Computed example of a mutant assay.
Amino acid sequence: MKFIIITGLSGAGKSQAVRVLEDIGYYCMDNLPPALLPDFADLCLHSKRNIDKVAVVVDIRGGKFFNDLFKSLYDLEEAGFEYKILFLDASDEVLIKRFKEQRRPHPLSTEGRIIDGIESEREKLDEVKMKSNYIIDTSNLTTAMLKEEIRDIFLEGKETKNLTVSIVSFGFKKGVPLDADLVFDVRFLPNPYYIQELKDFTGNDKNVREYVMKWEQTKVFTEKLIDMIDFLIPFYIKEGKSQLVIAIGCTGGKHRSVTIANVLYEDLKEKEYRVIMNHRDCEKS
């Protein structure tokens, strides 16, 4: 029997995750007290319904009962049950925005600041995050992207690394992305903006991409950039980082940065990293 335990930060997408698993045939239970995990697993195993795939949400809503989680995990192992833990995470800024949009209090700060509740929850979940088999950072994922990611892992059985690489192209004149971990400036490359027949296109268009990529300095830079990212990513994974934001900027965020970001995205996608793309300023005037 496949047994998935879903946990993570409040507002990070656990409800969406359990719905996806339900859609692909898992028998799902939300907000189960951790102490009941062994009994629930045994009940499902011996059910006349022939339940062979189970997903359970266990999170901080259980209050003091959440402290029973690690004992219950030990009891599951002693009883011979194999399980996987899926941990949903997101940045503080994104979580605060989601709570404000939904006008909901954080379960650990019903009368205080949202950030206080998030920080307290992170501390309580730190140990279980380290024990998790799959970590998905939903900060820059749409609901459709999250659905695809979960289906890839639990339906298609694809190998996944617990790191989401988010590539952002941007224009320096509109500001550097606040959540960027690595920032690369490509304003030294020849600018298609000054070529009349290319000015109104973007790095997503073949003619602009060919112009940007034809220069020797572009080829050397791209090769060195890919080599550096290949070197760094395994160390970020080893460190336990769940999201890496790589920002690539040019003046307006429309031509050079878009082109280089696309090249890096394609390379990482081919290497089967979990990677998402955001051309922040591409369509802005």
Rank of each mutant, 00 (worst) to 15 (best):
I135C: 08
V263F: 02
L88V: 06
D185F: 09
D267N: 15
I150T: 15
D39Y: 03
Q16R: 06
L86R: 01
G25S: 07
T251F: 00
R280G: 13
I233S: 07
K53M: 03
G117F: 03
R187H: 14
T218N: 06
F201K: 15
V128C: 04
L141G: 10
V220N: 10
V20H: 09
E127D: 13
Q217S: 14
L43G: 06
W215I: 07
A261W: 02
N262E: 13
N50A: 08
R98K: 11
M145R: 05
V128K: 01
C44W: 00
K238E: 12
I260A: 11
C250L: 06
F66L: 03
D92K: 15
I135E: 01
N67Y: 02
G25Q: 02
E78A: 08
A12C: 08
E148N: 14
I5T: 00
V186W: 09
L43N: 02
V176D: 05
Y26M: 02
K173M: 05
C44L: 03
E101H: 04
F188Q: 15
L21T: 13
Y193R: 08
I248H: 08
Y27T: 15
E123L: 12
Y74M: 03
N133S: 08
K100M: 11
V20K: 05
I114D: 11
K174S: 11
N31H: 01
K238P: 10
I233F: 03
K100R: 14
R187G: 15
D59M: 00
D39S: 12
V18D: 02
E111Y: 05
M228F: 14
Y74H: 03
R49N: 11
N67R: 10
R187S: 15
T110H: 01
L155A: 13
E210C: 01
V168M: 07
T259W: 01
E127M: 05
V212D: 12
I276W: 00
G11Y: 03
E216L: 07
Y26T: 13
D181K: 10
L232F: 10
K269E: 13
D126V: 12
R187C: 13
K206V: 11
E266M: 08
Y194D: 10
S166C: 06
G171P: 11
D179N: 15
D281G: 11
K199W: 00
S169N: 07
A247C: 08
G253R: 05
K206S: 05
L268V: 15
K173A: 05
E283K: 11
S257V: 14
D185M: 11
E77S: 09
E77F: 00
D116P: 12
L125E: 08
I233D: 08
P34N: 04
L125C: 09
K269G: 11
S10T: 12
Y193H: 15
I4C: 00
A35Q: 07
N262S: 14
V245L: 10
L244N: 07
L146H: 08
I5P: 00
